Simulated assay, not measured.
Amino acid sequence: MTTSSNAPPGTRMTNAAVAIIPGPYEWTLTFVLQNRGVFAGHWLLPGGEINPGESAEHAARREAAEEAGVRAGALAPTGIYDVRGRDDDVPFWFRLHVYRSLIPCDIPADFVADPTEVSQVSQTYPHEILPHPTDMAILNDAGLADYDPGLVDRLLAADGVAMSRVDAT
C-alpha cells in the first residue's frame, strides 16, 4: 500500500472508526453514499470521528447505527490505518480503526438517513459499486474483496491520498 504522506508535518491526527457490516445475503456489505467531509460523493463503509472519551469500537457501532441504521452485534478489530491527504488545500490525517461485525445486519425498513450526512444506504456486493479506494484497500486486507492492488494505488494517488497500515491485526 502507499506509505508516503502528502500531509505536512504537524497535521493534527483525527481518530476515526469504521464498521464493516455484512448484509443479509452472503458477501454483501453495508455502504453509505457520503454527503459531506473529505470523501463526500463516495461510497464508504459507515464510520466517522471518535468522540472524546469514546472507544473506537463504540464509535464504529455508533456510526453504523447513525449512518446506516444497522445495529451491529459483536465486533472484531480488523486493522488500523493512517490516511492522509488534502481537501481544498486543507491537510487531513485520519487514524482509522476498523471493526467487522461478526453477524449480518439488515437495514431497518423505516430507517431514514440524515441527508446532511448520507444520501443513500446500500447493502450490496463490493464489486457492484466503486467505494473510495481507502475502503477498497480495507476490504482487500479483510479478505472481503479482491480489488486490483495496482488500481487501488492509482485511485489513491489520483485522489492525493496516502494510506498505510499501522498494525498487524
Rank of each mutant, 00 (worst) to 15 (best):
T2N: 15
T3A: 13
N6F: 14
P8D: 10
R12L: 13
M13Y: 07
A17L: 09
A17Y: 10
I20Y: 09
I21Q: 02
G23L: 08
P24K: 11
P24R: 12
E26C: 04
T30Q: 03
F31S: 07
F31G: 08
V32E: 08
L33W: 12
Q34L: 12
Q34N: 12
R36T: 15
R36H: 10
G37N: 10
V38S: 11
V38R: 14
F39S: 14
L44M: 13
P46W: 07
G47K: 03
E49N: 03
E49T: 12
E54R: 02
S55D: 04
A56W: 05
A56P: 06
A56S: 13
A59E: 05
A59R: 07
A60P: 02
R62V: 00
R62L: 01
E63T: 00
A64W: 03
E67C: 00
A68M: 01
G69A: 02
G69L: 02
A72S: 13
A74D: 10
A74R: 14
A74M: 11
L75K: 01
A76T: 12
P77D: 00
P77Q: 01
T78C: 14
G79H: 05
I80M: 05
Y81C: 02
V83S: 10
V83W: 02
D87Q: 02
D89G: 01
D89V: 01
P91K: 08
P91A: 07
F92R: 04
F92Y: 13
F92I: 05
W93Y: 06
F94Q: 05
R95V: 00
L96Q: 08
V98E: 00
Y99Q: 03
R100H: 12
R100L: 09
R100Q: 14
I103T: 15
C105L: 06
D106V: 13
I107C: 12
P108A: 09
D110M: 06
V112Y: 08
A113D: 08
D114H: 07
P115N: 06
S119F: 04
S119A: 13
V121Y: 11
V121P: 10
S122M: 14
Y125G: 03
P126A: 06
P126H: 05
H127F: 11
H127N: 05
H132A: 11
P133Q: 04
P133Y: 05
D135L: 00
A137R: 11
A145P: 10
Y147F: 15
Y147W: 15
G150W: 02
D153Y: 07
D153F: 06
L155Y: 07
L155R: 13
A158D: 12
G160Y: 08
V161Q: 06
V161F: 04
M163N: 05
D167S: 15
D167G: 15
D167M: 08
A168N: 07
